[in-house]
Amino acid sequence: MANLTLVQAINLALTQEMEADSRVILLGEDVGKNGGVFRVTEGLQARFGADRVVDTPLAESGIMGSAIGLAMGGLRPVPEIQFEGFLGPAYDQLTNHAARYRTRSRGAVTIPMTVRVPVGGGIHAPELHSDSPEAIYAHTPGLKVVMPSTPYDAKGMLISAIRDPDPVIYFEPKRIYRAFREEVPEDEYTVPIGKAKIVEEGTDLTVISWGATVLQCIEAMDNLPEDLSIELIDMRTIYPIDVDTIVESVSKTGRCVIVHEAPRTCGFGAELATLIQEHCFLHLEAPVQRVAGFDTVMPYYKLELDYLPDAKRIAAGVMECAAY
């Protein structure tokens, strides 16, 4: 066991998967000598060589498209897109090709690649460095989308993603890259894709979140009345959705608040709320609440904390739902 940050846990998973499987190669902008702009791939080029940790030209479509080719060619590429905003230039390759090859070739061509992407706000970065586009990709059939929020999950889910036979977008909540440490086993282990985690059990109200806002939810819970028993769920995987865990929880509590950074309209919270009303209608005591970003462009950092759901707004949402 070692006490690791999220960044270190990801680095460890990459190291071990590269040790174990020579098909695993990393590619992206500044991932080699510089170890990535967040130092996630620190030391990996020195260890595995420039053939396996590849500094590419500055071209996201190039990175994504050639990673697709590498995957078809029998490798297990792990491309990095430097910030979620720069998935833009790679969008066509990702959604129109990576996501569709299995289907359009009726299973003859598959794309086992893991696209690593730092995601979300809260780090005082310039524009297009703070967005939360997970719903866009969850809405793209053929892509799996994950977003771990703890070092333990980060390691286990990255290993699952790399071993997965299909394309996985592995979002890394950059705000909590170094926010805290956690015991992470030395040995390789997997955390399944498609399985949410109950962070805290409770009986009165379910709070669902993922990524960096899980920490905001935990903070919010510290300031809620003690007699309000909250069940906190970290989705960990956006798609495929773990419907069972949610339905079981909300059937028990009858109340649910969903928290995400992304814009409210058509955010992933909307899908969860729909699933809840489909499956838990007769158990519901209150409308499902959303505490989310707004339907605007993510503001520059002077206003980003006004935009992002924080513990106060989450607590208020919970109280409103509890009082309904």
């Binding site: 707004f294 106060k312 707004r313 208020a316 949402g317 409103e320």
Partner: peptide, 8 residues
């Protein structure tokens, strides 16, 4: 946003 935590 100015009055509420939720935007609603």
């Amino acid at each position: 946003l100015r009055t509420s935590s939720l935007g609603t």
